[in-house]
């Protein structure tokens, strides 16, 4: 079998590394890979903060394009808050005694918080789980993309979705007779707190999204715990109506303190210590979950 020598074969003669005994290397104990921590081996690439924002922005843009191209998903995300407002206001509300005797006024701040949690947790967990199951994540990870920016982009785009949901809830709230009685500054603070609280939980959701097997599991496992988590709080009923053994938890649940703060600020009263507790929970959850999520993404 002779072949006319071509440029290709001529070139190869020098690029062949002769290794006559390939077995010998497998028996030699090679230098073990140093178990350097994630920080040591995964420094973010150079380029500084501007490139970090660029990376996160590109990721967020990608997610928003996905969202725009699946309008049905966005619709479902908006139907749930509207449904909850209407069902609790008109079906269950009549049987629930609240201070002030106006259930609509009591309910809406609670629904704001609950639905923002459901939206950002479900959205982020499913989004992250979906990304992890796709080959494009390998491409991102083989590129000089900031590790934290990939997840930050996801949480940013979920914030945009939360914004739309909150606007819809405000409109429906006004239609069912909710009165925004607070002063402008506390009311602005109330909405800022609402977004920050949801954003902090989207980092917890990112952790869930990476821990589960896929988007379907993320949908189920990511939101199931939110039912007890949000129901055992002051969202729908006064905590004082709960049995004694449940009350200590319900009174100190992060959901309760945030809902109480929103109620006070939107209704024109003083939130008291609930405001500071809300802030502490929000900052605490974000500062614990965000680094954990990024570390997990790096090592995945």
């Amino acid at each position: 079998m002779s072949r006319t020598p071509t440029a290709k074969t001529a070139r190869t003669t020098k690029s062949v590394k002769t290794t006559t005994d390939t077995k010998s290397t497998s028996t030699t104990k090679a230098t073990p890979v140093s178990p350097a921590g994630p920080a040591a081996r995964e420094r973010d690439p150079g380029g500084g903060i501007a490139w970090w924002f660029s990376d996160a922005g590109e990721m967020a843009l990608r997610n928003l394009k996905h969202l725009r191209r699946t309008p049905d998903l966005m619709m479902y995300a908006l139907i749930q808050p509207v449904m909850f407002i209407l069902l609790f206001r008109y079906v269950l509300g009549g049987a629930i005694d609240v201070p002030g005797d106006d259930y609509g006024q009591f309910l809406l701040p609670g629904i704001f918080v609950q639905m923002v949690l459901f939206g950002s947790v479900a959205g982020t967990a499913v989004g992250v789980a979906d990304d992890m199951s796709k080959g494009i994540m390998d491409r991102f990870r083989s590129m000089p993309v900031s590790r934290s920016a990939v997840l930050a982009g996801r949480t940013f785009s979920e914030l945009a979705r939360t914004l739309v949901a909150v606007v819809v809830m405000i409109v429906v709230g006004l239609l069912v007779g909710f009165r925004f009685d607070g002063d402008p500054l506390p009311m602005a603070g109330a909405f800022l707190l609402l977004f920050a609280f949801g954003y902090a939980f989207s980092w917890l959701a990112a952790l869930i999204g990476m821990a589960v097997s896929g988007p379907e599991a993320a949908q189920a496992g990511g939101t199931a715990w939110l039912f007890p988590f949000t129901f055992i709080s002051s969202v729908f009923v006064p905590v004082s109506s709960m049995p004694g053994w449940l009350r200590p938890y319900a009174e100190h649940s992060p959901v309760t303190v945030v809902v109480d703060t929103l109620r006070a600020w939107l209704g024109g009263t003083d939130a008291g210590s609930a405001a500071w507790q809300s802030l502490a929970w929000t900052v605490g959850i974000a500062t614990v979950c965000a680094p954990l999520a990024v570390a997990r993404y790096r090592n995945k």
Partner: peptide, 19 residues
């Protein structure tokens, strides 16, 4: 390993930015 829900152009433009 490309994004199904983006166009061909959007995929490549995004990746160039990320690079």
């Amino acid at each position: 390993a490309v994004d199904e829900k983006l166009t061909g152009f959007e995929n490549l433009r995004m990746l160039a930015r990320l690079a």
